Computed example of a mutant assay.
Amino acid sequence: MSSQHNKHFDAILVADIGGTNARFALITDFDSQSNQFIIEHIHKFPSADFGSLESALSSYLEKIPHITPNRACLAVAGPIKAGQVHLTNLGWHFSVSSLKAEFAFKQLEVINDFASFAYAAPYLDCTQNVAVKAGQADKNANIAVMGPGTGFGAACLVQTSQGNAVLSCEAGHISLAAVTDLDRQLINELRKQHNHVSVETVFSGPGIAHLYRAMAAVKGVETKNLDAAQISELANTGECPVCDATLNQFCDWIGSVAGDLSLTFGALGGVFIGGGILPRMQERLLASRFVERFADKGIMSQYTSQIPVTLVTQDNIPLVGAAACLHANSHLN
């Protein structure tokens, strides 16, 4: 982009602030033909190198001294309450209004990582992602995003003629429903260790180990003290049939959860699944009963059958989502 072009288009600062890395970039344009944001000047900093978000942001701005963005959107891996943001893993805390004043932003939005995923959904590049379930998306309908990672996150992009908005929620903490006899047996075992068996109890990094222990108990096999990475390795090498059954059940059962959330959100615009876990289980997910269990909703099975499901593997989702948040609220182009 030439500096002349940048003067015409006010560059927008976007960031992806996680527990491990803080990534900053500039959105310098929006290509309406390809429906893609032009992302430039991407810099990644180890979050632990900085005592605060303010110092990390200052370091980034020093790298682009010729550009002074006056609008910004930050996607953060943490809760935002009453304009206060806590990144507990880092010990970072900041006030949105103080940050806006300190850096003289005319507009500053701070959203969580699943809200950014929801905003990004209409701008994803289908060639970089994996179709899990075929369907016919209604371009004007709601879109649901979800996925297991450290916890289980979900959000909904509500699309109306007045514009787009993101509905954030705590879907990870809804009660996990049993559909099959095996599901019921597993939930009975999980209840012995967990007062409330939620979606996140199973569908998260720690959840894989919870599911493994329940599966071993159901099968009458002695459990070993394994974490998610060890369970995955033993399943993939074929050394542990219980580990293999655990991951297969994980992929099958999350189909039912995704189908439930598609009904909850009215997601006829499609379902996008992300998070840190399922992209690494791509082959297993595609070979599982995910599609069958997603669609199996009794009298609403025809409704769920038409919804496409995509596994999102492309990079830079939080940066795209941060740009899309401002785009949805003020139309860049």
Rank of each mutant, 00 (worst) to 15 (best):
D138H: 15
K224N: 14
A177H: 06
R289T: 15
I143K: 09
S32I: 11
G172L: 00
L99R: 12
V130M: 01
S301F: 09
V199E: 05
S256A: 15
I12L: 04
L268C: 07
S175F: 12
S301W: 08
S34G: 07
G266M: 10
G91L: 02
L53Y: 06
A287S: 07
C251Y: 04
I299W: 10
A101Y: 08
E189D: 07
A134K: 09
I67C: 08
D227R: 15
G172Q: 04
G19M: 00
S262Y: 14
K192N: 10
N140L: 12
E189T: 09
Y123R: 05
A48L: 11
A209V: 08
V271F: 09
A11E: 10
N333C: 12
N6C: 07
A328W: 02
P241V: 04
D183M: 08
F290D: 00
A134P: 08
I17Y: 03
A235T: 07
H173L: 13
I208R: 02
E222W: 06
F114W: 13
D31I: 08
Q185M: 05
Y119R: 13
L87D: 14
A287T: 05
T150M: 14
N333F: 15
G18E: 10
V166N: 03
A165N: 07
R213P: 02
V110C: 07
V96Q: 15
D16T: 03
D252V: 04
D227W: 11
L157C: 08
K44E: 14
L108T: 02
A144G: 10
K106M: 09
G147N: 02
A324L: 02
G321L: 02
L319I: 05
G18L: 03
A75L: 06
F203G: 03
S95K: 04
